[in-house]
Design a protein around this nucleic acid. Structure first.
Lengths: 341, 341
DNA sequence: AAACATTCCGAAATCGTTTTCGTCCCACGG
DNA sequence: CCGTGGGACGAAAACGATTTCGGAATGTTT
């Protein structure tokens, strides 16, 4: 039991460095932090000692003293990491390499778990919080009186005073529609996703508005709502071709739906994009580039969202507060399903 | 500049609670931590005060004093979060709700970034480290003298003294082969993934050994190596059918490959699983359940790996050290691509 | 040589918590 | 009535770093 755990040597403390260099801890601290009033020779001795002992400052003690931990918490509700990993990476980038570390916690859509993680993060004195939702519908704020800046990503907060960043789904709908129109497609159908999602309706809005600007409307008059699945894509395509065989482009609510659509079109003997062009949303690489032909898809820009969130926290920390729901532009990635070779 | 930042109220400190309750901080601490020698009435007063001020102990100060942070670091090299998120969730589960928090950092396969994250985590005094690789090939240890227990997951460390947990790819190959044999399939082919991956060869080993036990060998005599892509699945299937048209089952190196295989089989007019059964590895839900028919696939058990890693860190913290590469069993998930309705 | 300005350095306070010792007071037995 | 034991509480020392402020040593003027 009381055996030597071996790991007791938690590394050198500043005190050890100071002793090795023959100075006080105060001087050692100043030397290491490039404070003034330290003799060059002394500084050198301290630096050497620190190097020799491979000294690493205890970030906890630093935080305790300064009140800043150089840490932000990221609470996600995204079970697959589909959103959170790119957002995490974007945030890490924006925080400049090494200046900040990110605590990622998975709340799994559970309010209890979320509350627990929130309190754990705050008690570790994170300097900011990023909350990632799993859908773009507004959600209740995670707290109303956090002592640090909070930024919502993907799912905006219902509170106006809060700051949120979401992808521009309406714009995404516009972009993909304009792309198809520019290719000369005029009989465009939309096989949408789950109608309970705000993202679904935003995309529809962008699509319909763009068509209207061109004096057109959707084939069949309205979108076909269903679910975010390949099987829905297959089923919808079958019924679409039966009812409106002259369609020349299909916008799909997601890459998954598009995969089903492609399969059905292939089975029906339709050429893509020769007979019918196919485009979708999400740009989920594994699905979009695995498809045949590869899918034209709108990238939702998760990395950019993460960067925006990180910068917003930086700004808030500097006293520049912001609020409201900000939309971030998406990016159309054109592949062979719309402009075949 | 020097304007009130607004967030100065970092919450109540123990000192505030003590004053509100009319006791010393020492007594307040004892009351909150259920130490003895505190009068019940006093304890009640303290608890009420803490409640009223919504007091949250500063975990940093606690860690500084106790040396235990209740935190583990998870450094991942998995860009997509495909492995790390399930592993993270498994670890969180094993650490009992709320006892431990997990710091997730993405090193993106970059040694510099990894070193930086390592030092950041250690300086925050994590109690343990979990290192997640992106492939099962042995990798150089992240450090040789960490002051805390380190566990490698998915990619094992090259050092024998280190502790690693990896999925049992050989066993996975066995399981899927036995499944097909039990269904009466005898002419089994294997369209494998990238030959540079250790996982590829482990799976091949399991498959060939199991076939040998049954007095069989692979159709074509050996696996067909390629890449982890749908297009490879399509291409390999075409050449396979041309050379060995009597094949009655195909084991695919990944779900992605399987998707390509299914598509080619469909195009060739083969029924799945009527004419040919298809099975694969990874059980990537989005791919496996979206396929038609849905894919029988071997789940690599990431969550279980995360749990094992967490328990190992717990054990090491308790003085029970372990080492070597431990394999964790995988789980065959049977779907329609092998046992059609 | 005295007065003064410069450097350079160290003692001590601070951050918020836990824990170890005292100290105080009350009740009890002798 | 006095000594004693023990329960309740508080002062203070950790934990490891930063920062303020005062003091010592050196150098520069008259």
């Amino acid at each position: 039991m009381a055996q030597a755990a071996g790991h007791s040597a938690t590394g050198a403390r500043l005190k050890d460095v100071a002793e090795a260099a023959g100075v006080s801890v105060a001087t050692a601290s100043k030397a290491l932090n490039n404070r003034e009033n330290v003799h060059p020779a002394t500084r050198r001795r301290v630096l050497e000692a620190a190097e020799r002992l491979s000294f690493t400052p205890n970030a906890l003690a630093q935080t305790l003293h300064s009140g800043r931990s150089g840490t932000v918490g990221l609470i996600t509700h995204d079970l697959e990491g589909r959103f959170s990993i790119p957002i995490l990476m974007g945030a890490e980038d924006a925080f400049g390499a090494g200046k900040m570390s990110i605590f990622l916690c998975d709340a799994r859509g559970d309010a209890i778990r979320q509350a627990h993680h929130l309190q754990a993060l705050l008690s570790r004195r994170v300097d900011g919080l990023i909350i990632v939702g799993s859908r773009t519908d507004p959600r209740p704020p995670v707290t109303t009186d956090a002592p640090v800046p909070v930024v919502y990503v993907y799912a905006p907060s219902e509170r106006e005073e809060d700051l949120s960043f979401v992808p521009d789904n309406v714009g995404a709908g516009r972009q993909v529609t304009e792309h198809l129109l520019s290719l000369g497609r005029r009989r465009i159908a939309h096989i949408a996703g789950d109608t309970s999602y705000a993202a679904t309706h935003d995309r529809v809005e962008g699509i319909i508005a763009t068509l209207a600007d061109a004096g057109l409307e959707l084939v069949g008059g309205k979108p076909r709502f269903g679910s975010w699945s390949e099987s829905w894509g297959r089923a919808a395509t079958t019924s679409l071709l039966a009812g409106d065989p002259e369609v020349d482009a299909i916008i799909c609510g997601s890459d998954q739906i598009a995969r089903g659509v492609l399969e059905s079109l292939h089975g029906a003997g339709k050429e893509v994009p020769g007979d019918i062009a196919v485009a979708s949303f999400d740009n989920w690489e594994i699905l979009a580039t695995g498809a045949r032909p590869q899918l034209t898809s709108v990238d939702m820009g998760f990395t950019a969202l993460g960067q925006r969130a990180a910068r917003a926290i930086f700004d808030a920390l500097a006293g520049r507060h912001d609020s409201g729901v900000h939309t971030e532009p998406c990016r159309l990635v054109v592949r062979a399903s719309t402009i075949g070779s």
